[in-house]
Simulated scan of single mutants.
Amino acid sequence: MKRYLYIFIVILLASINIFGSPDTFQVVDKIPVGERTFHIDIYGNYATICNYSGTAKVVDYVNGDTVLYVDNGILSIPMAGYYINNYLYVIDNGDPSIKVINKWGSLSRKLKLYARPINMKYSNDKFYITTINPYGLYIIDKQKLKIDNFYKFPVRAPFISIIDDDIMVPMYENEKDDILKTYKLLFDLSKEDFIINLKRILFPIDIVKYNDYYYLGEYFEGGIFEFSDNYQKKIAQFGKNLTNIGIFNDMIVGNSHYGGLYFYSFKDKKIRHILKDIPIVDFAYNKSNDFLFAISHITGEFFVIDKNLKVYEKLKIGDYLIDIEVPTDNIILVLDTENKTLNIIRRF
C-alpha cells in the first residue's frame, strides 16, 4: 500500500508541473533509519545510513525501497558505508575493521584495521579511511580488500575532501589553549606530503577548488582562505562555527551554526549573508547549480535557495535535521536524527 501511495504522489505532483506550475518541492517518503544516525553516504542510486548503535540500512532513494538492513550483530559501531554491486562496504569503529556484507545481510569478507576508523570516502576503486588511535589515513584496495598504505597524522583529522580525484585531509584539531599542536595544515595524497600552515589557520575543516586555486574554511573562526603549496591568504569571513563550504555559481558558499548562509562572489569580491537568524547545520546543491538546499538543526526547516540567493521555498520537515545530500537534480535526501527518519524530497 505504501508503494502505491508513493507512486500516486509522484504522478500527481508531476502532472501539476506539466501544466506550467513553477517548481515545487515535496517530501514523498519518510524512511525509518533508527537512532544515532548522523550522516548519509551515497553511491549510485543507493543511500547508506549507518546507525551508531549497531545497524546499517541501504535505501534505493529513487523508489524508496529498503534493499538491505543489517541488524544481526555483525556490526558494532558502523560509521560509514557504500553499497556497491550488491555488497555493503562498511567501517566499524567498535570492531576496528572494514566489513563486506552481501545482499542477504551476511558477512562476506572482513579486513582488520589497526586504528579505529571514523570516516570513509570512495573513489576510483579505493577506500580512503581516516582513523583515531592512532590518527591517520588508510588507503584500501576495494577489489583485493587489502591495505595499500597508511599515513600517520600528528592530530585528529576526520574530514576528507576529494577534489579532481585528489585526496586532501585537513589537520582539524590543530590548536589547544592558544598553542598550535602542529604546523601542518593538511595532507595532500597526490604529493604524499603535508602543506605547512603559514597563516595560523585554526581548525581547518573543508576544502574546495575554483579555477586553479584551493579554498579552505576554518570551523570556529569562520575564515575562508585561498591557498596553494606556498601561498595562503584570507579572503572572507563567514561568521562563526562554519562546518561546510562549496562552490555555487561562481561563489564560495558556507553555513554557520550561529546563523545563515554566507556567499563570497569571485566576480565582485563581496560577501552576502542570508537567513541571518536561522542556524544552518548543512547545505548541498544540485549539479545544475540552479538551486541550493539548506537545513536547520534548530528549527527543523528545509530551505530552497535560488540563483539570486532568495528563499524560493521552505518546509518544516523534522525536529533535528543533521545531514543533506543531493544525488540528482530532482531528489534531495535529508536525515532527521531526532525522528530517526530519512526524508526523501522530490522536485516537481
Rank of each mutant, 00 (worst) to 15 (best):
N93F: 14
E313S: 10
K314Q: 12
S97V: 02
F150W: 06
E313T: 04
E221A: 06
E218V: 06
D319C: 02
I18Q: 04
Q237N: 14
T341H: 00
G44Q: 08
V90H: 14
I11G: 01
V33C: 05
K103Q: 10
T328Y: 01
Y82C: 06
Y46E: 03
A115H: 02
D71Q: 11
T131M: 02
G54W: 11
I224F: 03
I163C: 07
V28Q: 01
I162M: 02
Y215L: 12
G44E: 10
Q237K: 13
F25V: 06
I271W: 03
D23E: 11
D206I: 11
S161G: 02
S123F: 02
I331C: 01
F25W: 15
I332R: 10
K199N: 13
I40G: 08
F248G: 06
I160D: 07
F238C: 08
E221C: 04
D229G: 00
Y262W: 15
I9K: 02
K184I: 00
L185Y: 10
D229Y: 15
I305R: 02
N93M: 15
E301G: 08
I280Y: 05
K233H: 13
R109L: 05
L261V: 10
K234T: 05
I322L: 03
I252C: 11
D164I: 06
D268P: 06
Y89Q: 03
E173D: 13
S288W: 07
D178F: 09
H257F: 13
V304Q: 12
I305G: 11
D290M: 01
G318H: 08
H273V: 05
Y214L: 14
E173A: 03
K233S: 14
G81A: 14
I18D: 00
L113E: 09
Y213V: 00
N330Q: 09
I271L: 04
M168F: 12
R109P: 02
V67T: 11
A47G: 04
L111V: 09
Y122G: 01
E226V: 09
L5P: 00
P158C: 07
F153V: 01
I98E: 01
T337H: 07
I49R: 00
Y231A: 05
Y320H: 15
I298N: 11
K316P: 04
G64H: 03
I280P: 08
I331N: 00
S97G: 07
D92T: 07
G217I: 14
R109G: 01
P327A: 02
I195H: 07
L145E: 05
I201V: 15
D141I: 06
A115R: 05
D41T: 10
Y138K: 02
G260P: 02
V155T: 12
T24R: 12
Y128P: 04
I31K: 00
F38T: 04
F283H: 03
S265V: 13
Y128Q: 02
N102R: 03
I98W: 03
D65V: 00
I322R: 05
